[in-house]
Design a protein around this nucleic acid. Sequence first.
DNA 1: TCAAGATTTAGAATTATTCTAAATAGACGG
DNA 2: CCGTCTATTTAGAATAATTCTAAATCTTGA
Lengths: 148, 148
Amino acid sequence: MNAVATKPPPENDLNERLAHSGLRLTPQRQQVHEVLREKMDHPTADQVFLRAKNKMPEISMATVYNCLDALVKCGMVRQVTLDRGATRFCPNMQDHSHFYCDECGSVYDILQTISPADAGIRLPRGFRLKNIETNLHGLCPDCAAKAK
Amino acid sequence: MNAVATKPPPENDLNERLAHSGLRLTPQRQQVHEVLREKMDHPTADQVFLRAKNKMPEISMATVYNCLDALVKCGMVRQVTLDRGATRFCPNMQDHSHFYCDECGSVYDILQTISPADAGIRLPRGFRLKNIETNLHGLCPDCAAKAK
DNA sequence: TCAAGATTTAGAATTATTCTAAATAGACGG
DNA sequence: CCGTCTATTTAGAATAATTCTAAATCTTGA
């Protein structure tokens, strides 16, 4: 078995998923999803826009962002690196990971009890690994308390 | 040279580190580093700029970016989420992580043999974890071959 | 059919980052 | 010390990425 991932099953439940999140299936959302599945090269929003335009010349950039957000929200698409906004910086060079509060946006240093390097990640032949970045997402103690 | 043995400045190895990467220690770089160490709340470049201006009103945004890049390059600062550019999207909802080639910028899906959730990460009380994102960085097979 | 609400659109606005060219500051050899 | 060389800083413009706005359109359900 090869460790490089294979194409996911065809779009069976897109409609269902959208509906489950209170969203509608529209031609644009379908198209954007199709573009992503066609060539799984992790395109940027801009690339998705250009590709979608081939089949659907009227589509606009704003709609592509809308559709991507909708697809992410309903769990059909992953945003590769969840930070849409300014990069943050950290002077702590110890081995640690970061916890992002989805609610308030704050970031916490989290000490690692076991380095993810020991977590059993196995790379296919030829890849040369330099470092691993682990990002945790959820609610910080304050927001978790409020959410109750 | 002072005959009285003075305590090494807290900065002790900033200079050394910069030098090791062929970079100079400048007041601005020192100031930016100081700002980061003063309040470890993972500020954005913009926030660093505003804070640095208090002590050093002449400093410019471009310099802050310069300094941050220098500090990251010499290993004194981490960039929290290494993606400075457009967000990428991925329709593969299987449990997997992403490998970023530092050389050519391409992104590969990597199946996980063990989920990082099992990797022994232990959160302090109160945090509620929703999901984990693991990003691998290094060279892809093509670039690794060329690098030889 | 109509009203309500969701979605799309074009384009403007905002935000984040990079680039450019000129000015300045150190470091180094004479 | 002095001038030269190169790295760095600066202001501001340019570019890139994303979000917002308001009007038009489409869907759904009464």
